[in-house]
Design a protein around this nucleic acid. Sequence first.
RNA 1: GGUCCAGUAGCUCAGGGGAUAGAGCAACAGCCUUCUAAGCUGUGGGUCGAAGGUUCGAAUCCUUCCUGGAUCACCA
Length: 593
Amino acid sequence: MIEQKIRECCVAAVKDLYHQEITPEIIGFERTKKEIEGDFTVVVFPLVRFARKSPEATAAEVGEYLKSNIPWILHYNVIKGFLNLVMKEAFWLDFLEEEAASPNFGTTPDYHQAPVILEYSSPNTNKPLHLGHIRNNLLGNSISLILEANGYHVIKVNLVNDRGIHICKSLVAYMKWSNGETPKSAGIKGDHLVGKYYVLFEKQYKEEIRSLTASGIPEEEAAKSAGLIVEAQEVLRRWEAQDPEIIALWQTMNGWAYEGFADTYKRLGVEFDKTYYESDTYLLGKALVYSGVEREALIRKPDGSIWVDLQDEGLDEKLLMRSDGTSVYMTQDLGTAEQRYNEYHPSRMVYVVGNEQIYHFDVLKRVLRILGKPSGDAIFHLSYGMVELPEGKMKSREGTVVDADDLMEEMYLTAEETTRTLGKVDDFSDKEANLLFETIGLGALKYFILKVDPKKNMLFDPKESIDFNGNTGPFIQYTYARIQSLLRKAADAGSSSFVPRPSSLVTQEREVIKLLYQYPSIVRQAGDELSPALIANYIYDLAKEYNQFYQEVPVLREEDPAVVSFRLELSSITGDVIRKGMKLLGINVPERM
RNA sequence: GGUCCAGUAGCUCAGGGGAUAGAGCAACAGCCUUCUAAGCUGUGGGUCGAAGGUUCGAAUCCUUCCUGGAUCACCA
């Protein structure tokens, strides 16, 4: 890595020239800005106090030292405290031949012993997936691929929320009003059918509360005493008592939901190594909590409920077990964390969960620590921001939820319309064309979501369809398809595979190579920060740079066959990096579009 | 009220101690007899929420304030 070499050489320069010891980290090292001549820039301001000279003089002396000690440096220039280094072309050409052309470029060989457990998706069986889940799933899927590229063994797990009072609500509604309809008889996707009954319950429940309050009952009391909610609670009791009738219906309706989810996951392109169900895990953690009481790390209140007191740590008291001895979400999460930790001995357990649960994970880690469990330190909550609509947060009650299946279908249709209008598929078979629409539509959606920093909230306006021009998935896909078109034409013309070295590089070639050089460090950084956005923005920069090259520099039209051959090679490598980078985002690229 | 996150061009987003703050969209003006115009080039557009502070240097770090959001359930 040239950066390390240059940093070390700067340390040596300060030692030899100024007889001072410095550490490599204090040196500023970056890519040279585009308008200025140079490939890499050393910021020497931090060195001037050791040199006791002006920034310009320091930069010049260090520059001279670097040039005579690092053979790859051709020359340098100094602007204020910025030492701009120009590398020899051989440096870039060696890089292309020896690194970029390698199939493993940008991936680290498998070297991490302990796996990483990555939990994401975590749907609720009474609601179909919506845009928020899409972000979650795309992030989880992409992060798993990025971690794998960085040499980690990733175990992707899904924890399905398939029990609880909310699930019982859809059961009650179904028993009352369905007349036994099924996804098949209703012609509705399973998860949507279940969701329909959940919504119906909420609607009727609200109606019931309204009529109760109209007859003079306070709202709070009405919400508790309404017949529907009482029924749902009764169903929950029967469920916990394993009532065969309830269990059977519960299994049937959950089965419908899973069939629906499976379709959505498939179209989104996400998958899991293991699926956990809360109905299996909700009792886990109780023993942990009891042992915590015995060790007096937790508090049992007179009514029997168990709490953890985090007030010394600046938080509140938090319930861990109800007074009737039943467990809450936290109890279960304590249990599953321990279970996974003991099963896989992971180096990290990453949870892709929305930022509304920051407090939950904070408490979870603290409680595990209080209980003396090391699993708490392995937990990392990847908290991502919400997807907001122009009018604010998505609310299922107000019908402002953007459904995942609908959105994917819309993207497909928009892709089809745009593509047909442009006349791009006139010579495609139906099958090829449909595949292309899916690739472009889903590519646009995925890129749109993944290009923004996971931590930040993002805005989605359903009225404005996701763009296909500019900083978008289709733009990148188009660039890739263009490259493949060039390569096909060249292959047809029978150009040789021998790639001679060009006598010199034009600016556009050099800029593309410099960006290619960044790729491995971007992949590493994306792995360190668990941020697909870094890959997305990088691939965009690369595609944009390549397009400029493509537009301004002849490839096949070039007369010198050696230059043609080199430019094809550069194009081919760029195409490979675009494909690999997009793959890390879970986005496919088409050979033609 | 406590805690946490965010505020950068009209809009959506990059940049998270270094040079004159960048892209895309939208607007306007160019570029297809030549490798795919889902492209390329150019123009306009900014007191980086505000004020202080640290620093040779601050959009970036610290403090306070303003605005928006999240969260603080015997929900998950």
